Amino acid sequence: MSTHTVRHEVLGPWSLDTSREFWEGFAPAALTAEQRPGTLSTVFRVDGDWSTAHLAVIQRDTVAELSLEGDGDLESAAEQAARFLALDVDAQQWPGIGDRDEVIGRAQHALPGLRPCGFHSAYEAAAWAVLSQRIRVEQAAHLRQRVIADHGDDGAFPAPERLAALHLDLPGRKAEYLHAVADAALDGRLDTARLRSMTPEDAMDSVRSITGIGPFAAELIVLRGANAPDAVPTHERRLAAEVAELYGPDRSVAEVSELWRPFRTWASVYLRALAERR
């Protein structure tokens, strides 16, 4: 097993502790590795070669030190880790969003330095979108953990080739849709870097070609899988309810989010995170 360490300068506010606390409560992909004080650890499937990588992150002031172990392309794994931890985003303008929108300003104060961590990849986000259709989040999280325990590698979600060959006993058409997700990943249609390089709208249109992926799932894959920082979730009812609660019943997400550019996804996640805390 090889090792690789990267020291990444993080531009803008960042707190590893706040980000780890957020991810620990992120049921779709909650951290399962044992966490040491001052460290964020996780294991994930690397886009492209589908190897397993073990990651440990520590914060040294404005520098993120990413230490990886694995048998695959660890340089690509480090880039992927920076992306799903949102460390690759230049957030020097993020505090200014709170200056011009007091609701977001209060959220920033409550969640200092939060970097909205996403799924490890668009592939894992798509798999979650399928597993969570029409069932409770807790049930879907249990299904995901069962799939990992039975068919994954050392805590990582099964690779697409493995997933495509599985005969899974899952509710409804979930097994069929998971096979479609696996095929799409093998075809390159869920390449996270490619989706991130596209406009969010084009990326969503692209992933909607996958069987079982509708509008809500497409948003999840792009906004939390590719971790695009600036797009508005339009099929998230709980966000709409939160905006109505905080801004007034006559305000819409589309309207208030104009103040959040170029961090509309981040602002949306902050509001949802505070709602979950309550």
Rank of each mutant, 00 (worst) to 15 (best):
S2W: 08
S2A: 12
H4M: 03
R7E: 14
H8N: 11
E9L: 15
V10T: 09
L11K: 15
L16Y: 06
R20L: 10
E21A: 10
E21F: 03
E21G: 07
G25S: 03
F26M: 04
P28Y: 06
L31K: 08
L31C: 15
R36W: 05
R36P: 06
G38W: 07
T42G: 11
V46D: 10
V46R: 09
S51T: 11
T52D: 12
H54N: 14
A56P: 10
Q59S: 11
D61L: 10
A64W: 10
A64D: 12
A64C: 15
A64N: 12
L66P: 05
L66I: 14
G70L: 14
L74H: 13
S76W: 12
Q80G: 11
A81Q: 13
F84H: 09
V89M: 03
A91F: 04
Q92L: 05
Q92T: 12
W94V: 02
P95F: 01
G96I: 01
G96P: 01
D99C: 00
D99V: 01
E102P: 00
V103L: 00
G105Q: 00
A107S: 09
Q108R: 00
H109D: 07
L111K: 03
P112R: 06
R115L: 01
G118I: 01
S121L: 06
Y123F: 14
A125K: 13
A129Y: 08
V130E: 07
L131F: 05
R134N: 15
R136C: 14
V137E: 14
Q139N: 09
A140L: 02
A141H: 03
H142G: 12
L143M: 14
Q145H: 15
R146Q: 14
I148E: 03
D150K: 06
P158F: 00
A165F: 05
H167P: 11
L168K: 02
L168P: 01
L170V: 07
R173T: 06
A175I: 05
E176H: 15
L178Q: 09
A180N: 09
A180P: 04
D183V: 15
A185L: 10
D187W: 07
D191N: 07
T192G: 04
R196S: 09
P200F: 03
E201V: 10
E201N: 09
D202W: 05
D202M: 08
S206I: 01
R208V: 05
G212C: 03
A218P: 02
L220R: 11
A226Q: 13
A226M: 10
D230V: 04
A231W: 02
P233V: 12
H235Q: 07
E236S: 09
E236F: 08
R238E: 13
A240N: 02
E242V: 00
E245S: 08
D250A: 13
S252D: 02
S252L: 02
L259D: 08
W260F: 05
R261D: 06
R261Y: 10
R261N: 11
R261A: 08
S268L: 07
R272C: 12
R277C: 15
